[in-house]
Amino acid sequence: MIKNSQTTLSCILVILFGFVLFYVGTDGFRAYTAETARLYKLMEQNPTLPHVTLEDSNSRTYPISDLEDKYLFITFMYTNCGTVCPILEMNMGQVFNLLPEEYIGEDIVFLSISFDPERDDPATLAEYKSHFYNADGETWRMARIEDEEELDQLLETFGVIVIPEGNGDFGHNSAFYLVDRNGVLIDVMDYTKMDEAAERVISILESEKGA
């Protein structure tokens, strides 16, 4: 009988251990993939934009801080991508459309950053931009970061993981990134939920207006 109760006790201990393990391992049953865990971490840390130099589809070169007095709505992509990127950009265009016109260009700039600077020169970016009718090169810019170190630093700060597949393609994670006027990352949003993203952006901009 005593032995039996010991086994029961060890059962309970094991279950407890499992509970703790899963609790710790999934950030309190919230994050089952590294991607969600990354997002939670990003939201807690609110990192600031590192210094990077952009070269956009109009062949202009400028530091990203030039845009910093406005909100930035950022995605990461490469033009040769045949899978996620076109959808990502298309969805970005939808968010663009959902925003009231008054904010666009004034309070917020859309920015698609390529992580394949070798192939995505300004001409390629301009060509790619033309597929998205509302990407005008001003209020919605497409740019590359030529300096490898700067690019890597930005990708790391924002937790973007890019794996070359060896045949010219990349595997990568995708999301909408929102950066405020001080260059602080304030939100990372699901790129498949355009309405939610638009609402979120509008509410931020409106509350700012009100204040």
């Binding site: 032995k3 039996n4 010991q6 086994t7 060890s10 059962c11 201990l13 094991v14 279950i15 499992g18």
Partner: peptide, 11 residues
Amino acid sequence: RWNENGIPGIL
């Protein structure tokens, strides 16, 4: 003592 019927171990 702690794994008499095997259940804790398998858990």
